[in-house]
Design a protein around this nucleic acid. Sequence first.
RNA 1: UCCGCAGUAGCUCAAUGGUAGAGCGGGUGGCUGUUAACCACUAGGUUGGGGGUUCAAGUCCCUCCUGCGGAGCCA
Length: 433
Amino acid sequence: MSRPVITISDLAGHVDQPVTLRGWVYNWRKKGKLRFIILRDGFGYLQCIVFRPEVDEEVWEKAVELTQETSIEISGKLVADERAPGGYELKVDNLKIIQIAPEFPIGKKDHGVDFLLNQRHLWLRSKRQHAIMRVRSEAQFAIRDFFQQRAYTLIDSPILTPAACEGTSTLFETDYFGEPAYLSQSGQLYLEPAVAALGKVYCFGPTFRAEKSKTRRHLTEFWMVEPEVAWMQFDGLLDLCEDFISSVISRILEECAVDLERLERDISKLEPATKGSFPRIDYGDAVKTLQTLGQEIEFGDDFGAEHETLLAGLHDRPVLVTRYPADIKAFYMQPDPTDPTRALAVDVLAPEGYGEIIGGSERSASLEHLEHQIEIHGLPRDAFKWYLDVRTYGSFPHSGFGMGLERFVAWMCGISHLREAIPYPRMINRLYP
RNA sequence: UCCGCAGUAGCUCAAUGGUAGAGCGGGUGGCUGUUAACCACUAGGUUGGGGGUUCAAGUCCCUCCUGCGGAGCCA
């Protein structure tokens, strides 16, 4: 009798048929002559039943030997049964042990954060982490599809760079054949020349910031997607942010329903964001609103985490805060033509306290203005020569933004800390495993 | 970097300055429908390191280390 080897994602087509599955023992329970084995194969979970009177003694002895995370090949008849989680179970008639696992560090009860992070390579096997990784993967493909379908060209920006993009002191330095080099903290400066070649571009890769931040919203290594569009001005940028977020969330809700349910994510909190119409609030109005709410903030201050949460909390979908004071924003931003003390910058604040997920701006197209800004910010003129060439050889209006993937994934999954939104988080004091 | 909290069994946590315990996990046994199964028994400890106070320190004091939460900064 031939038995197809199937995965748990493919049960429905094999009901009442003999099948073989391969995977790991997620959990097991014993009840006299019964053994319940929960098999995990990376695609799902399946309850397998070994009933002593109905199997060879040899099979029973193997079933008794099983431990959590033992790798096995298991065969039997797949049946539908309402008593089984998921609605299907396997009536086992054969069992092959690949390797008996010794006591698995991660058990059924709660563990501390430190312990779990030290076991991150094993923690990934848990249901919750599995679901988060599925959402992250889907988010990445949704993002790439969004740009691909709109004729953007993917431009991979370099990881090793000669200088700071935003002139901060939060760079990881490395030795590049005797010269200092830095791990990239943004691909933007490399996208701007590329957009003059290709019209619409984006990059999507890891970025590095040596900020000594110890908060739920920071990693030292995180993934950022950054589109850049030629001839796009500020209003177009705001539309792009909105269209982008709506589209990607819609796809997550469609494709990851099972994962979001496993994460017990309240979908109704995400649905408004699929419908567009994101509120757009002028920075000045946002400050007034915060003052009305009793916050001690003055025009000219940047928002803290609490301010962002308060502002976002007034709406059921992301909020676009626009036109920040120029001097609290990066040097390359285009001044507002109606008020040069303001920059054509936008931050997108996610609901439920997830904070800033996007930061973007129209870029300054003026060589003079940029040269002045570089001087004011005390940046080395020579290091930016190539960047300024964008404004020398046929300057043009253009805009772009950056979105942190982990912040987006954390929001989608409803998880409180970015460390769970990336397979192997890198944080201050944590480089293992 | 600053402020706050914590460190006790493999894990999660208890323990008025007075004999260090429980649950889970491990081991042994029982149970034909379990859903983090249950029941019984059992093994398992230099209480983060160093110093101090005290008749007596897991507990109080000093110091160092590690981690967590928050702030600033940002995506």
